[in-house]
């Protein structure tokens, strides 16, 4: 399977930046995938699945992050991540990914239709 690094540019477009809720959603989302994902901002590189590390990036509105992923489902992981960012971590998106509080987490994420 493809083990090369996949990458994708992410733009932070919500006003509060990658805040606690956002970082939590990212971590939960990535647990559904096998890929190892890292986020890069300038000289800093952190594990995207660790909310403390992601928060410490201090990614603010308007800033760009680079997501790098390794593993069989890397492209899918990046795609999902990209959508999360594009939709500004809206509740609706989170719900579609089954990331909202209280919902069972062991169901595979269904890509939203339309």
């Amino acid at each position: 399977m493809c083990q090369f690094k996949q990458s994708r540019k992410l733009v932070v477009s919500n006003a509060e930046g990658v805040h606690a809720r956002a970082a939590t959603l990212i971590a939960k989302l990535l647990r559904k995938f096998q890929a190892k994902v890292e986020l890069v901002k300038g000289a800093e590189r952190v594990e995207a699945g660790d909310v403390l590390q992601v928060l410490s990036l201090g990614a603010a509105c308007g800033e760009e992050l680079l997501a790098e992923a390794w593993g069989p489902d890397a492209p899918a992981a990046l795609e999902a991540l990209g959508r999360l960012f594009d939709q500004q971590f809206e509740d609706e998106v989170a719900r579609q990914f089954g990331l909202v509080a209280g919902e069972r987490q062991d169901v595979e994420a269904e890509p939203p239709t339309g």
Binding site: A20, R21, A23, T24, A27, R31, V51, Q53, A101, G102
Partner: peptide, 26 residues
């Protein structure tokens, strides 16, 4: 759960973050 019930999920979200830090971070 308590806060989400009383005030809505958005308010319970901060506890999600704490839980995330507690259980899944380094």
């Amino acid at each position: 759960d308590l806060v989400s019930r009383e005030l809505g999920e958005k308010y319970g979200a901060i506890f999600e973050a704490h839980l995330e830090i507690l259980r899944h971070s380094r």
